[in-house]
């Protein structure tokens, strides 16, 4: 009989404690971020899709060695280059990234010896067509330079 009443009282007390916690939390300021109005700042190491690093003249540093292509687990990078006069190695003509297959692992960035690619800070990408996520990074770089 004693245990019966004890359980009622401890149980009821636990409910009151719970309610006091939620009402205390209610008076605290909100912690959510109102996304479209305030966007979060990505950390410096944030891994977005890759982009080409511009050199001093606004060109790229790529030597078309193809390491990124080979290191990619999902085969989403295609690099094409051609031999040009006055340039050591090859010049980049096309850098195609199929972002639909990318898993943002960063193997390409790590494997790149000249440091020609880096992670972008784009995170709020949205689109309705698959084609919108097949990027030509060289074009992207040229557009950024404009």
């Amino acid at each position: 009989m004693g245990a019966y009443f004890k359980e009622i009282f401890t149980g009821f007390w636990s409910l009151l404690v719970g309610m006091s916690i939620t009402i205390r939390e209610m008076t605290k300021p909100v912690v959510t971020e109102q996304y479209p109005y305030e966007a979060s700042v990505m950390t410096s190491r944030f891994r977005g899709h890759i982009e080409l690093v511009p050199n001093e003249e606004g060109g790229n540093k790529c030597i078309v060695c193809g390491m990124c292509m080979r290191s990619c687990p999902s085969a989403c990078i295609t690099v094409e280059g051609e031999k040009r006069e006055g340039i050591k190695g090859k010049a980049l003509t096309r850098y195609r990234l199929d972002f639909t297959r990318c898993s943002l692992c960063g193997m390409c960035v790590e494997s790149c010896r000249p440091g020609a690619i880096r992670f972008s800070k784009d995170y709020n990408l949205a689109g309705t067509k698959k084609a919108a996520y097949i990027f030509d990074l060289l074009k992207r770089l040229e557009e950024q330079n404009k």
Binding site: T22, I23, E25, M26, K28, P29, V30, V31, T32, Q34
Partner: peptide, 10 residues
């Protein structure tokens, strides 16, 4: 509203 503020949302 009540739920949101209890859960510290808006």
């Amino acid at each position: 509203k009540g739920a949101a503020h209890i859960q510290r949302r808006i």
